[in-house]
Amino acid sequence: MHNPFRTYHPAVAFSYLACAIVFSMAIMQPVYAALSLAGAVACSCVTRGVRKTLRTLGGVAVLACIAAAANVVFVAAGSTELLRVGARAFYLESLVYGVCSGCMLASVLLWFSSYAACMGSDASMALFGNVAPTVTLMVSQVLHLVPQFVARGRTIVASQDAVTSAEARTKRDAASDRLRAISVLAGWGMEDGLVRGDAMRARGYGCGMRRTTYKRYRIRRADAAVFAAVFALAIANVPCAWFAVSGFSFYPALEGFAPLWAYAPYVLLMAVAPALALKEWWQWR
């Protein structure tokens, strides 16, 4: 599936995912945990695709189960006894708490994988580049040079291995050959650095003008609209979440669930990513 955030400014994806991650981590309440997990799964499905989401979910489910089981085993608190082994009792309340923390863990991991899918180097730089133009350039160079460095290392080792007529005959030779590859790599890199430095100066780097940063993305009306919606829902959710959490207790018994309206802002916030995808699907149905 096409990532719906791709058509928006990176700030939109960033603000949405940042809010979702913070709320998922901060609010420990069964309904919220369930909503977070549902939202994280939905968002991952629309940004990364169903198959990848299922694969991640498979791994995450194991972790979540371990977290839930551990809580039941180690925390003997609650009022509804599920079963008793000898003198040890296992309670429903501690199971619910464990499942909630498992859900929280799973949803946070899924949000982060969506974040990685939406915020590539390009997007991150567009967002944070203006804060530090020099850092932007540096990051851009690192992103360019690191893969090049790795690929070159492989090439050097391969071209060394291809010369069997000068093959290492002793163990010491073999060890020095590996070191040799590193010094070839370093020499090559430094030589390239000189040429690159010339190429940079030739195009006016350090010519005394104040550097500007080319902005790949511009904030448009649609970006602002989605951004505003996310912002409003997040603000509205703060008192609601506080209300829901402060009235709720896991132990000794599960009680103090907030009325349904208190969950409305969070439900809507979780629905933003699927809604964007749905809008696109509707246009192209």
Binding site: Q141, H144, Q148, D192, A199, G204, M209, T213, Y214, R216
Partner: peptide, 22 residues
């Protein structure tokens, strides 16, 4: 290879223009 400074094509073309503060 050695003349390329940035990671993407558009950034590479923009590089000189950024330097002269356009």
């Amino acid at each position: 290879d050695a003349q390329i400074v940035c990671d993407t094509v558009w950034h590479e073309i923009a590089f000189g223009l950024e330097n002269i503060g356009m």
